[in-house]
Design a binder for these strands. Structure first.
Length: 545
DNA sequence: AAGTTATGATACC
DNA sequence: TGGTATCCCTAACT
């Protein structure tokens, strides 16, 4: 009864299989799960190729891999399990020679850990900022706790996929959401039905939002329409701080889009960055640009993220499509004045300082790796660790971003959605992963049988045990069913993850998750959410027995 | 129930 | 360097 995994034939075998003679019987490499259900409903396509003398025109119904176009194997879903094309590099770690199924990172308990580099006292960051930041560092590492079960509320009011989320800084039950169309949603998830959608603030993708540190009723937003808006949440009245396309559409070469955004309260300035590599500073009082745009990333490349250090706002972190995250000193901000360049192998979707000390950096890159720099005062040439995790780029999905848990003083917990699916009890699901960034361990994975879409947008509540997620056009709020229960497991590392009740888990039927009694676009579920026990490895873990 | 579509990074010339 | 063909686990629609 426990979740069953249908491990179908291993790709390697399928290659050989050409003449239908022996079905994939010679399969042993399927570590564990010998329950090779042959009941694969393959409607065998036999090779009619050899019919009579007619030779040349072979409309063979043989298996052709849709990925590499070669014959003898097929990539794609077999039931709820995805079979990789064996001709391609691993979809998880990107290395050739194996597939996701046998990827070492799917099995290892720790992941591609790069040794922490030795301390380098030449680091300019240290020189400039250490004295200000050091007293903030917390040496204590309290346990964080993740509940066994969570309740999930669902709402769908966006007409395009969700792109960003933000919790209200003082009202614990308000979640803001932005979408690809530029709409801004305000959801009171306590009174689940209450929501407001502002549709006229932006005309295309809302890339980033940030509350005004000076006024928690005001929200700033940066959009691909090239404007920065400031909206009063009560009235919906919005003003435009800057518009980079005052003359409208003059072609793609000149249309400027705003991506990264953050606010420096001390300087009273809103920072935004565009798709051509430039950073702009906007005075939040006069609503006017101060100074000139500064090129902070490769010319012509998107700057998708900006983050001011939580304790030294003059320390700025940027990241973008030029495969770099970069550290800047705002007091000396000009092209070429960069403090450090953090190199990645692909586009960097996000880069964040750690929430408490501000001395760690966590980045998400499209090379399927999370990177952690343990201290900005160290040698920043290479990360302290790389964690292989599936969060690939897909043009139809909002880019994944690993987010710190803002409540974890040990600065070791991060949340990020997972791209590749896992076969959970017969359905392919894409969990939301909680990762210990010190060890690479997958601490928890949240999923719900009702949610079959990928969930790239996730944010943890700054004060409560609440996770907000955006998946396609839907929003989710996950909250503990009960206050956490530490009775059984006390190991700090072994956070009890969802579905702590192992026995019950397998027994749950569809009815346990009450049906989305649609009141049109909206539904609430007060139901259990599938959860997994603490696991050891990163990306995939087979559902147990 | 197959096919369509929106749409972004990248490899390659 | 720029233009373009290509592309592996999408999701919501017809």
């Amino acid at each position: 009864m426990a979740p069953q995994v249908r491990r179908t034939a291993f790709p390697k075998v399928l290659i050989e299989r050409d003449t239908d003679s022996e079905q994939s019987s010679s399969d042993d490499d399927d570590e564990e799960e010998e329950q090779e259900n042959e009941n694969e409903e393959k409607t065998e396509e036999f090779n009619d190729t050899k019919k009579k003398g007619k030779s040349p025109i072979t409309i063979s119904l043989k298996k052709v891999c849709k990925v590499c176009k070669k014959m003898g194997h097929e990539a794609g879903f077999k039931g709820a399990t995805y079979i990789d094309c064996p001709m391609k590099p691993c979809f998880l770690c990107k290395m050739p020679g194996h597939t996701t199924m046998t990827c070492p990172h799917r099995v290892a308990t720790e992941h591609g850990v790069v040794p922490a580099p030795h301390v380098n006292t030449q680091n300019p960051v240290e020189f400039v900022f250490k004295r200000q930041l050091k007293p903030r560092i917390t040496p204590i590492k309290p346990a964080y706790v993740i509940p066994d079960q969570v309740d999930c509320a669902v709402i769908r009011y966006h007409s395009r996929r969700v792109t960003c989320l933000e919790f209200h800084p003082t009202n614990n039950h308000i979640l803001l959401s932005g979408d690809k169309k530029g709409q801004l949603g305000v959801w009171d998830f306590e009174k689940v039905h209450e929501k407001t959608v502002y549709g006229n603030i932006h005309s295309c993708i809302l890339n980033n939002m940030r509350f005004s540190p000076a006024n928690d009723g005001m929200i700033y937003a940066a959009s691909s329409d090239g404007t920065v808006s400031c909206t009063d949440l009560e009235t919906g009245i919005s003003s435009t701080l800057m518009n980079l396309n005052p003359d409208g559409w003059q072609g793609p070469g000149s249309w400027r889009m705003l991506y990264g955004m953050d606010i420096n309260l001390e300087r009273g300035v809103v920072l935004v960055a565009d798709n051509f590599g430039f950073l702009y500073l906007v005075d939040s009082r006069s609503n006017s640009q101060t100074g000139k745009a500064i090129m902070i990333h490769k010319k012509g490349s998107k700057v998708v993220g900006l983050h001011c250090n939580p304790f030294q706002p003059d320390l700025l972190l940027s990241c973008g499509n030029d495969h770099f995250a970069r550290l800047w000193d705002m007091r000396r901000l000009e092209a070429g004045s960069v403090l450090a360049n953090l190199e990645h192998r692909r586009v960097v979707n996000s880069a964040y300082f750690s929430p408490f000390s501000g001395t760690k950096i966590l980045t998400t890159s499209q090379d399927n790796r999370l990177r952690i720099w343990d201290s900005i005062f160290r040698d920043l040439d290479s990360p302290s660790r790389e964690i292989v995790h599936s969060h690939d780029f897909n043009r139809h999905l909002t880019p994944f971003r690993a987010e710190w848990d803002p409540k974890d003083p040990s600065e070791s917990l991060a949340v990020i959605g997972r791209y590749i699916s896992e076969n959970y009890n017969g359905t392919a699901l894409h969990p939301i992963d909680f990762i210990d960034i010190n060890t690479g361990q997958l601490v928890a994975e949240v999923m719900d049988p009702n949610i079959t879409t990928i969930t790239p947008v996730n944010k943890l509540h700054p004060r409560d045990d609440v996770l907000a997620s955006g998946s396609s056009r839907s929003l989710f709020i996950w909250r503990p069913k009960e206050k956490f229960d530490v009775s059984e497991q006390s190991d700090v590392r072994k956070i009890i993850v969802f579905g702590g009740d192992e026995k019950k888990r397998g027994k749950r039927s569809k009815d346990d998750y009450d049906d989305d009694s649609d009141d049109d676009k909206f539904n609430v579920k007060g139901k259990n959410v599938k959860v997994k026990k603490p696991v050891k490895q990163m990306t995939h873990r087979k559902a147990k027995r």
